[in-house]
Amino acid sequence: MKLIMKISVVVMSVIALVVAVLGSRQVFFHIDTDFQSNLVIWGLIVLLGIFVIAQVICLFVFPFNIKKIGFYLLHIGLVAVLLGSMIYYMAGIKIQGAYPVNEQGSSASAYHQLVKANPTKGENYVANFSSFRFGVTDFAVEYYEPVYDIYRVNEEGVAEEQLATDIEINSEGIYDFGEYGQKTVEDLVDDAGEYQVVNLTEDGSIVGNPRSSVKSYLGDVTIVNNETQESREDTISVNHPLRVNGWKIYLMSYDETQNAAAFIFKYDPGEYIVTVGMVMIIVGSFIACFVRPRQAAASGKNETKKPGSKKKAGDAK
């Protein structure tokens, strides 16, 4: 067992080293690794393979003990995560699509690009993907009220110095720019209701720049099953992907100028295995670290008490 433990420690150390090298390249040199084609991924897969084998041997060699349930959950969970990830790597498909928004939900001018496909069955994605039709009937973007930053600008209008930041609208609907006065929303928005850059001095040397961010994207979509011709209408937002015929549809972004929404369609047969594996690891780690130490602590207390009690006994004598 010592040998398996040592092998596990060596493999884990090498994995940490390899990932640390990748992380250092990203942080210090801003170089990302292309995991679809780079040899590094194959090196990691080999290491992970050895890691999985070592764990499976551990699971079988150690006699079964229900008190080690945390250990089992954690290590079987790790194997499940790696297995599920391998299934996705081998059989997963990912397609990126841009859909124009129209009331009919027509996808006639939708643009698709294959992002990732099964390397051995690359062409089959079309057959899988054509099991349903997808279109966007409506799309809403909600923004937060912008905050204003104040800048000193030069004659060309280029910002030279930031004088204040994060000036937000108050409860009376007024932006207070301090020594540069106050502005109402009506002063700041154009005819279309868009917040504009505002001159805060007569000579135009001090300006206020609006900075707004998106609060929510919400798309109304229509999905038609090509086999049954059943139509389904649904809403989609960031963080809430839809599931259709084994595919998962993600809303990624929205282009206001094109009035088109970007989606990713993903087919991942290993997803449930990975998710279950991750839950097993979390639960297993809590059981392994919180339940077992108490037993160890209890036994440890007994060990430390024994010499003391012997001493007392000796003193009594």
């Binding site: 990748l22 990302d32 690794t33 995991f35 990830s85 990912k94 960031v238 963080n239 809430h240 992907p241 998962k248 993600y250 990624m252 990713i264 993903k266 997803e271 990975v274 998710t275 991750m278």
Partner: peptide, 10 residues
């Protein structure tokens, strides 16, 4: 996996 489409993006 819910928001960026992948469990792990490296």
């Amino acid at each position: 996996n819910q928001v960026w489409t992948e469990f792990w993006s490296w």
